[in-house]
Each structure stands twice: as C-alpha cells, then as structure tokens.
C-alpha cells in the first residue's frame, strides 16, 4: 500500500493492533480452572483413583467452563464492536479468514487421529487378533475362539454388543446435515443479495436442522445403550463409535451455537452484503462438520 493511502484520514487503519487486553489472561486462567476441575471430576466420578474422593472437581470444572464461555462471549463482542468502529481493514479481514481456514485444518487433523485408530483396528488389529498375517500362535494361545468380524460383536475378552444399523436414524441424520449444508448456502446467497427475509428463513432453518440432528443423535445413543448394548466399553467398535460420533456431536453443538448467534445478530440488523465474515466463518465450520459426518456415515455406520 502506498504511503498516501495509509495516511489518508478516513477509512480503517491499515492494520489495527488492539489494546493491551485482559481477555487472554482471563481466558488462560479459565482454561486452567477447567482442566484442573476436569481432572478431578473425571477421577472422582469414575472411581478409578481411590485417593481422590469428593465432588469438588465437578464444580470447579463447571466454573471453568462458564468462565471460558464468558471470556469467549466478551472476546467476540469486542471484535464485533471494533468492526463497527471501522477498525477492520481489508488486510485484517484477510487475517481473520486465513485464521479460520487453518483452525479448520487443525480440527480435521483432530478427527484424523480417531479415524486412524478406526482404520488400524479394522484393517490390522482385529484380523491379527484372529490370527491373520503371522499371528496364528498369538491367536491360538490367547483367544482361540475369537473371530474377525466388523462390527466387532464379540471382543476377544468376551464383551458382546449389537451394531448400529446405518439406514435408520443415521441415514436420516445424513439427509438432515446435507440439507442443512444446502440451506446455509442459500442463506449466504440471500445475504449476498441483501435479501434479509430469505436470509433469516434459511439461517433459521439451518439452526433448526442442526438441533434436530442433535436430538436424533441423543435418541440414537439411548437406543445404543438400552437396546443394542452398544456402549463406550463394548470393545473397539463401541470405542471408535462413541469417540467419533461424540466429538462430531460436540462440533455440531458448537456449530449450531455459532449459527444461532449469527441468527440473533441477523435479527439485530448486523451484516451487510459485502461485510459478514463471522457469518461466513460459521458456514465454513458448518460445511466442515458436514463433511466429517459423511466420513463418519461411510466408515462408522455403513461399511
């Protein structure tokens, strides 16, 4: 940018460097409280650490979570206010976009860890336990009755479970999420044409679809626990099932909250046809959650 453009009085500053800020230290303290509480809560509620008794962990954990939520609320409203004060230049806007992109990349890698565990278990571990490759001796010595199946109905140790069928609720949920990816795109198009009515309708519908997805997910979990005997502790099938769908559900929850906030902000008249980064970021996140689900549906439920 040329020097003149930088000094011309109106328009945003070339790059806004914010105040010294109390948000980060509040945030890191809150994060610490959450982690400290979570550690004690987990130990106290699962009864695996006899020396750690009581229930203070839960309360500390809760306080930490609330503090994190407050910090995030305050952080994002600060950024929104700064944007209304005209402090966000095109360059800063580009920084926000790139940040969101790389954040989503890191989220993808987080899921990759669990998918990796799933693939290894299915392709290598379970066949090996049943004697494949050069593992016949181990098989005969340890668990001679163990058979290689997927979903793993019967673990080497004798745990039993039934599988979650792909074409019931999970399929309905797939349809819901894919539809919601369409509705969020329609909302975005509406926003770009500045048609606020359709924007609200499509965005509202997306939030609704996200919520229905979550409700159905809960229904599915109840069915898994009570009818199928499929739990976190029913072997590697249950482990990968709940880890993947659980973290995915947590991300859908977060995405739904993000979109709900966007809806509220839309109602309050925020966003213009060419300035609505928060909306776009939330919709990117939503598409990411959707794509992860397609992976889940394919590899956790279907094949």
């Amino acid at each position: 940018m040329s020097q003149e453009a930088i000094h011309s009085g109106d328009g945003p500053p070339d790059y806004y460097v914010p105040h010294s800020s109390a948000l980060p230290i509040v945030g890191s303290t809150a994060l610490f409280i959450t982690a400290f509480g979570a550690g004690h809560f987990i130990q106290q509620s699962t009864d695996t650490v006899p020396t750690n008794t009581g229930s203070f962990g839960f309360w500390i954990f809760l306080i930490g979570l609330v503090a994190v939520a407050c910090m995030m609320y305050s952080w994002f409203s600060t950024v929104v206010k700064e944007s209304y004060q005209g402090l966000v230049s095109e360059k800063l806007d580009r920084s926000f976009r790139q940040t969101m992109f790389w954040f989503i990349v890191s989220e993808i890698m987080f899921f990759a860890a669990f998918f990796g565990a799933l693939f290894h278990a299915r392709v290598i571990t379970v066949p090996w336990l049943a004697g494949a490759s050069d593992n016949l001796q181990t098989h005969l010595l340890l668990w001679p009755d163990f058979a290689d199946t997927w979903p793993l109905f019967l673990t080497p140790g004798g745990g039993l479970t039934q599988a979650m069928a792909a074409w019931g609720l999970p399929f309905i949920n797939t349809v819901i999420l894919v539809t919601s990816s369409v509705t969020i795109t329609l909302a975005h198009w509406a926003l770009k044409k500045n048609s606020r009515g359709p924007l609200k309708v499509w965005l509202g519908l997306t939030v609704l679809l996200g919520s229905v997805f979550l409700v159905l997910q809960v229904v599915e979990y109840v069915e898994a626990y009570h009818e199928l005997g499929l739990t976190m502790s029913s072997g590697i099938y249950g482990s990968t099932f709940f880890m993947l769908t659980g973290f995915h559900g947590a991300h859908v929850t977060l995405g739904t909250i993000m979109l709900a906030v966007m809806l509220i902000r839309t109602m309050r008249g925020h966003f213009t046809a060419d300035d609505h980064f928060a909306f776009e970021a939330s919709s990117w996140y939503w598409h990411f959650v959707d794509v992860v689900w397609l992976g889940l549906f394919t590899f956790v439920y279907w094949f």
Binding site: A117, A121, T125, V126, I236
Partner: peptide, 29 residues
C-alpha cells in the same frame, strides 16, 4: 498437534471410560 490431542484423549477414555483403543482384550491395540 491435533493428532497428539487425539491420542491423549484416547488415553483418557481408556483410563476412565472403559474404551479399549489400546487394549487387546477389547479388540484394540
């Protein structure tokens, strides 16, 4: 780093929530 977060999360659930990612008797490894 997210992969590290994933692996320690699996440790945590193996330790406390009965999963068997790293436990052969549950089909893990």
């Amino acid at each position: 780093m997210p992969v590290l977060a994933g692996v320690v999360t699996m440790m945590l659930t193996d330790r406390h929530f009965g999963t068997s990612f790293f436990e052969a008797s549950g089909g893990g490894d």
